[in-house]
């Protein structure tokens, strides 16, 4: 749910990175954090286990600049990818304005990819959202790995509705900002429709 403050002339939107465990959601946020000017970002918060697995969420507040005199602020969240953290994932989806689904390109992660995508769809439904109507983009991460499966197969399995999709190598930043820009644009376009 976007929050528009006419008094301080701010638009606040929430974007959630979703996907199976170890697909690179946190790495996306870390790259964005490292490459953003200090004045455009807040502190990145990671609620993680001792082994650096996301326990509850990562959070990165980002300012993108002004649009028609309104400061646009995006709050980026990741969900914990591991299957047993489903209750936490549902909480983080509350009030979401846009979703990035991060898929893992490795063949052996396809089952986890599909399970996570189905989980995203059903958790959104539980909150009264429809994935087909929400600003939504797909990222295929880990494209540099030797066991990455061809793009066409990923598209067929993970992007049946043909939303914008991006190939990525998150630790190197490849595709990271393209993905973010795409979802941010969709969110702002949705806002223009009068949401």
């Amino acid at each position: 749910m976007s929050f528009i403050n006419y008094s301080s002339r701010e638009i606040n939107c929430k974007i959630v990175y979703y996907g199976p465990g170890l697909c690179g959601k946190t790495t996306n946020l870390q790259y964005i954090y490292n490459k953003t000017n200090p004045e455009a970002k807040g502190k990145m918060i990671s609620l993680a286990t001792e082994t650096e697995r996301t326990l509850f969420f990562d959070f990165l507040p980002l300012s993108l600049g002004e649009i028609r005199g309104f400061k646009t602020r995006f709050h980026l969240y990741t969900v914990p990818g591991q299957v047993f953290y489903d209750a936490s994932r549902k909480l983080i989806l509350k009030g979401v304005d846009g979703v990035v689904y991060v898929g893992d390109s490795q063949l052996e992660r396809m089952e986890a990819n599909i399970e996570s995508l189905e989980n995203l769809s059903s958790n959104l439904q539980e909150q009264g959202y429809d994935l087909n109507k929400l600003p939504y983009v797909v990222q295929y991460n880990k494209r540099d790995l030797p066991n990455a499966i061809p793009l066409a197969e990923l598209e067929e399995a993970l992007n049946p509705t043909k939303v914008p999709s991006y190939e990525a190598v998150a630790p190197k930043g490849i595709g990271v900002f393209d993905t973010l820009k795409a979802v941010a644009k969709l969110v702002l376009t949705e806002l223009r429709k009068g949401g």
Binding site: I4, L64, I67, F70, T72, K185, L188, L191, R192
Partner: peptide, 17 residues
């Protein structure tokens, strides 16, 4: 009702990036 955001153009959005 129409909000100020209904006047946002594609260019406005592109300029942000």
């Amino acid at each position: 009702q129409p909000s100020v955001f209904s006047e946002i153009t594609d260019d406005d959005i592109d300029n942000l990036f």
